[in-house]
Every structure is written in structure tokens, then in C-alpha cells.
């Protein structure tokens, strides 16, 4: 029997981490929708963001770290689009997957120059608040604020603005969108920048929750799996997938640990495979995805 305080703590932490997974997964999702490719550079971008934030915030405080890493990530998104995605338009998706793998190595190299792969914590003073059974720290609040703002902003942009519907149109049918006079090329650039920005926010929150270390990209690859748990075609689905990943990870660690040592980090993938087998379009996705 699991005690209430353990359960409450695990649910809350799973939720905080789930938001991070969701935001990082959205970065993958955005690129998938406009370029039909898996962006393997995204995990390296998370790593870069972590180290940029660390180096900048040591000198100038965490706010500066946030701003600079947002700028760096947006720039990285822009560069990736101009140098990789654009020249490869019309080529089979595997070409872009391969190219982003190349970018993965390059960004790793750049990150090494920036941060020398040290392990450190972002300089943020922790204060603890007690809410009944639940203990909350500054880290929790800041990372919830950062990811929450990112998710909310993205959902609003996507669903409520003209730019959002234009991007959706491009994602649906780029040629058709061009036929209606939409600036497809610019919208694609914008999407890559957006993916960079979500990566920056997610990476920053991740750096708070997991500290900055040379294997931050590992969490991003985990988040990649979240992007499909609930269906690829709606932002809500990706968010649900991220939250599910975070929660399942924590709960499984508590419940299944006596029988399967160290199952926590892997359990989500059993679910993922099961979902893909039973409902390939995700838990809440619409059924018209590409499949035979």
C-alpha cells in the first residue's frame, strides 16, 4: 500500500516533469508537421540550451540566462531551417532525418565549446513551501511557470491566431496553402524558430529539474516518445502524452519497483508500444493518419 504523501509527491513531480516532456515533445511535433521529418537535432538543442543558460546565468543571473538561451535556440532553429530543411524540400523525409543527425553532432560540438560538459546546477536559490502533504520548491514553480507559459503560448498561437491557422494549413497541405497565397516558406521558417523556442523553454526547465549535465539530451529523446502517446495531430494530444509519460514514470517506479528493479525510466515505453499496437493513431488522435 502506498502512503498518501508518497503518492501526492510523485503525482505532483510527475506532473511538473510531464509538462517539460510535453513542451520538448511539441518541438519534435512542430517539425514533423511542417517538414515530415524527425528532428534529431532537437535533443542536442536541449543540451545546448542547458549549457548556454548555465554559462550566462552564472555571470548575469537566471533571467539573462533565459533570454539568451531563447535567443540562441531561436537562432539555431533559423539556421537549421535555412541550412538543412530548405535545401531538402521535396527530397524524401529520410534525407532531412539524416541531415538533422549531422546537426546533432555539430550542436554537440558547439555545446562542448560553450560549456565544456561540466555538471552544475543553475544558480537559483531554492525556497520550500509546504502545502499539506505536498512540498513545493522554487525550482518546481519556475519550471511550471516556464513550461506552462510555453505551452499556453503555443496553444493560443496555434488555435487562436491567423499565423497559427496558416501554419496548420501548411502542415496539412503545403502546396495547397501556397495556392491560397500563404507565404509557405516564411511559415516554415517560423515553425522551425518556434520549435527552437519550445526547446529553449523545455530545456531550461529541464536544466532546473535535472541540473545541467552532459546527458541532458537523453531526456529529450525520452520526450520524443511522448509526442505520440496520445496522438500526433493535436497539441492537446502531445501535451497529454507528455503528462502521461511523466506520471507513469513516477507511479510505476513506486508500484512496480519491488518486482522489476529500475523499471521507472522504461515503463512508459511498454505503454507506448501497447498503444501503438492497439490504437496506432494514439489514444485521442483522429484515425486518418498515414497507414495501410
Amino acid at each position: 500500500m502506498v502512503e498518501a504523501n508518497i503518492l501526492v509527491g510523485a503525482l505532483f513531480q510527475g506532473f511538473v516533469l510531464g509538462l517539460i516532456y510535453a513542451l520538448i515533445a511539441l518541438g519534435f511535433n512542430i517539425i514533423y508537421r511542417v517538414s515530415k521529418s524527425i528532428n534529431f537535432a532537437h535533443p542536442a538543442l536541449i543540451l545546448l540550451v542547458g549549457y548556454v543558460a548555465l554559462v550566462v546565468s552564472r555571470q548575469n543571473g537566471i533571467a539573462a540566462g533565459l533570454i539568451i538561451s531563447l535567443a540562441v535556440a531561436a537562432l539555431a532553429g533559423l539556421v537549421l531551417e535555412k541550412s538543412l530543411a530548405k535545401p531538402l524540400i521535396g527530397k524524401p523525409p529520410v534525407a532531412l532525418i539524416g541531415a538533422t543527425l549531422g546537426a546533432f553532432y555539430v550542436i554537440r560540438g558547439v555545446t562542448f565549446i560553450v560549456g565544456r560538459f561540466e555538471a552544475a546546477a543553475l544558480p537559483l536559490q531554492s525556497t520550500y513551501y509546504s502545502l499539506g502533504l505536498l512540498k513545493v520548491s522554487t525550482n518546481d514553480l519556475v519550471s511550471m511557470a516556464v513550461t506552462g507559459a510555453g505551452l499556453l503560448g503555443l496553444i493560443l498561437l496555434h488555435n487562436k491566431t491567423r499565423i497559427g491557422s496558416a501554419i496548420r494549413a501548411v502542415a496539412e497541405d503545403a502546396e495547397g496553402a501556397a495556392g491560397y497565397g500563404l507565404p509557405v516558406s516564411r511559415l516554415m521558417t517560423l515553425s522551425w524558430i518556434l520549435a527552437g523556442l519550445t526547446g529553449a523553454l523545455g530545456g531550461l526547465a529541464l536544466s532546473l529539474k535535472a541540473q545541467v549535465n552532459p546527458y541532458l539530451d537523453f531526456y529529450a529523446i525520452k520526450a520524443f516518445a511522448a509526442s505520440i502517446l496520445a496522438g500526433l495531430d493535436s497539441i492537446g494530444g502531445v501535451v497529454l502524452g507528455g503528462l502521461a509519460l511523466g506520471l507513469v514514470e513516477q507511479l510505476a517506479s513506486i508500484v512496480l519497483e519491488p518486482y522489476l528493479p529500475g523499471i521507472g525510466g522504461h515503463i512508459a515505453f511498454f505503454f507506448l508500444l501497447l498503444i501503438l499496437l492497439v490504437k496506432p493513431y494514439g489514444l485521442f488522435g483522429t484515425e486518418r493518419i498515414e497507414r495501410i
Partner: peptide
Amino acid sequence: RLKGYYLAM
């Protein structure tokens, strides 16, 4: 049942 992105996943 799956292709592309889904299969990769």
C-alpha cells in the same frame, strides 16, 4: 499498422 514517424516511435 504503422509507417514513418509512428514506426520510428
